[in-house]
Design a protein around this nucleic acid. Sequence first.
RNA 1: GCCGACAUGGCGGAACUGGUAUACGCGCACGACUCAAAAUCGUGUGGGGAAACUCAUGUGGGUUCAAGUCCCACUGUCGGCACCA
Length: 957
Amino acid sequence: MSYNHQEIEKKWQTKWAEAHAGQVHEAASRDNALYYLIMFPYPSGSGLHVGHVESQAAIDILARMERMRGKNVLCPIGYDAFGLPAENYAIKTGVHPAETTKKAIENFHNQMQSLGLSFDWSREISTADPEYYKWTQWLFLLFYKNGLAYRKKSPVNWCEGCHTVLANEQVVAGACERCGTVVVQKDLEQWFFNITKYADRLLAGLDGLDWPEKIKSMQRNWIGKSVGAEVEFVVGSDALVSASDSLKFAPELADAILAGKKTNTLRLEKKNLQVGDTAKLFVRSSATEARAFAYAKITGVETHPLKEISLDLDGHETYTSYAEFLNVMQGYYGADVSLETEFTIYHFEPTVSIIPVFTTRPDTLFGATYLVLAPEHKLVDTIVTDDRKSEIEAYRTAASKKSALERTELQKEKTGVFSGAYATNPTTGEQIPVWIADYVITTYGTGAIMAVPAHDERDFEFAKKYQLAVKMVVKPVVLQNVMSKDLGLSHGAQSSIEIVSDCFTEPGIATNSDFLNGLTTKDAKQKMIAWLEEKGIGNAKTTFRIRDWLVSRQRYWGAPIPIIWCEDHGAQAVEETQLPVELPTDVDFKPTGESPLVDSVTFHNVKCPVCGKDARRESDTMDTFVDSSWYYLRYTDPHNASAFADKSKVDYWCPVDLYLGGAEHAVMHLLYARFFAYALHDLGYLNFEEPFVKLRNQGLILGPDGEKMSKSKGNVVNPDDVVSEYGADALRMYEMFMGPLEDAKPWDTKGVVGIRRFLDKVERYVAAWQPTDLESVFEGMIDEMKEQAKIGIRRNEVLFNKLIKQVTEDLELLKFNTAIAFLMKWLNEHRREEEKTNGWMQSHCSKKQLETFLKLLAPLAPHLAEELWEKLGHMTSIFNESWPVFDPALIVDDVVEMGVQVNGKVRGTISIAPNADETTAKELAFANANVMKWMEGKEIVKIVYVPGKIFNIVVKE
RNA sequence: GCCGACAUGGCGGAACUGGUAUACGCGCACGACUCAAAAUCGUGUGGGGAAACUCAUGUGGGUUCAAGUCCCACUGUCGGCACCA
């Protein structure tokens, strides 16, 4: 016999919808508010996956339980609807992505409805909805206006398969994370978000989060903070030049200087430089930082009023009029500048190149025996000697060709070429060779390293291959022990000496290092940095691996970047009143994969917001991770037409109390969303920095064969089939019963059957249940029986209170599998007990117990619980009831079965009160025949008694 | 190579703070009901052994009265990173 799940589930889904069951609003107390969130799905054409069901069921169970406990729980759902699959489908079939997506969303919606999920359906959102992406665009502009979104030309990752650029996070082992095509480097101008500005805070913020350690460590690795120093090495015979003043240049100008095309500079401020002096030249590497790249001899100094300086001054921009010249100079130096203002022209001649390197081991500077520049390093052309030019050129060409693909190769043998140039080790004054090698990458640190082969494995390998000097400057702390290894000391010490003769990368004691000798690595680092700073040739420096987030995509199905390009005014923000910039619908999807936005005239032709002249709209769209970086904020106020969300509503619900989703978003989505929260916090929109207080990952649900589900393997389980055959309650509960939420688990349809059997058992039990008038039974008893009955009733109560405690605590800890196991166990044992005692009063299930059992079951199997609740005569929903609370006085057993051990082996069990004293326990234990047998003729050495747990007798022959 | 997680019956998995290892479910076997089957219910179910017992939580050591749990070494599986100086 089996209940009709199709009928029951439909009935209750309709009732819940009519009652707007999951709908919430900002009720009075903020303390009562909870925000439970799952990562919103991409509405793919193939519909809901059993993996979606897992996190949806889990969050629904928790939300339902907390609501029964009187909490105001926001549990929303939406769709991450922009993305490439729909666009690729359009290219193949001509069906517009908007149409595909709309259908897919409807399908997802219906599928989720059929699971009985108590989301607040009035807050359903889609990132592809103009009402949503209007605010994605608004946020882009907010970032743009605050210097967090900017455009820059740089080498970027290009995927030919997806026909777009990708963020670093989307490149996995040199290939596109989405389609697997090998990514190539292209020099393109693109939009970036300045996530590196927050690198340090994003790193530090992880410590306070209740997140899986795994995810935190992945984010830490990705951010990749390294603490060390930047050290300047000079190339050429003119060792250790000291400069009397510095000159700073923009990157383009520095390039021109290196190429010999620029030999003077125009300055308003007076420099401490005369003919014959030396100037140190810097290039601005970012808004706040400058990096030295050369020393130059001053060959001339002239001072003139602006009006007398040539409009086509050598090495400067050419101006058509003094008005324009003045305008530019005022741009640099302020409105006070006039044509009469005196400017100084410094003529110079670069003499010595400076190679700055980043190192985490400044303490090993004495051991730096050569330098290595990345092949793409700007100074390569400057320093290379004539006889090496062709060789270097060949190497650079080869290196640039192999980049992406070959860099992923395992254990690639290092290659390199000597540049012919020598640099000076600032500590020793020694001339050390400068090499060019592709084991140094241009995008990290300064693109150059000081090689310390004795203490770095990569440098050691390279030095061995090219026979470069290896100089040991750190010795292991255990070295003293090694001296006496012949006296037969430990293996640990012996292995240390082998490392020393090889390559020792651990911290130790500085040696062969003059003023550092005898210092620990930690102290030596500090002392070296102080020395470098004093000399003006280096400083403490922290470097990050993370790079700015490239957000532009050359695709159609995303939020258009709200920028207008004007010939005269450059990039201009679209005015707020003009948002959203909507995607044009009359477009053709080309088989080349090129975005149809590129040649949509209706889309492009706009007027410049500044001058009103013809201008062109930006045709790139945003990375879809931008959409998902703030969606949880929109849920708090999804229909707001004048803000991305009302601040009071955000304040009420956020941050998210529990966030559930797949671990595949460890570094992308979760890092980006954190960045958004930090940025919006600093801009005054949020009163928190971390958006997700607690995070849990659900594990993958594998196919019945233990492999990842995929269409090609044919091992995909469709939730619809399971719902129609076994019911939504059985599906949900089975997925929760499979194992720990975070583990990967294989699907087993037999397991669904097992859960369904349990649900049927519950249904039959409730249907057959009859109330008994215990009062009258009790009345008619003699005293002795009453006593017996009281003990039995109490035992029954204790078992039940323990059940309440177990289920509640397990659900709180997201241990759904064990919570379900306890419900099953209770029902099994209880039924057995009732049968054994013929349903006599001490084993009788009271109405209160029966109802409480249903309440405990309700979040897990909501439809059936509602149905049975109604069958028991209730007119209102079981979810209006409050969650059961156990009685602390009724969770302690009067008597427990306790093991008795002899020498640690269980030899018998005794029934004993859990708080019995040792004398009582001993009496009972020693009365056990088997225990006696094992103790016979032996001396009792010791007795260990842990009340309620164990009684262990230690004996000796 | 580095970082992280994990390893328990035929299978998915339990086991609190070290205290009766294998809860719960699946599967399997037997029994009841049935003309029969399904469903349902009941009983049993880590290995060896007739039994007493004994061996079992990846392997080898250690700590402890007592170890799946703590420590050391190793092996295997999965995930992440990939020359990040």
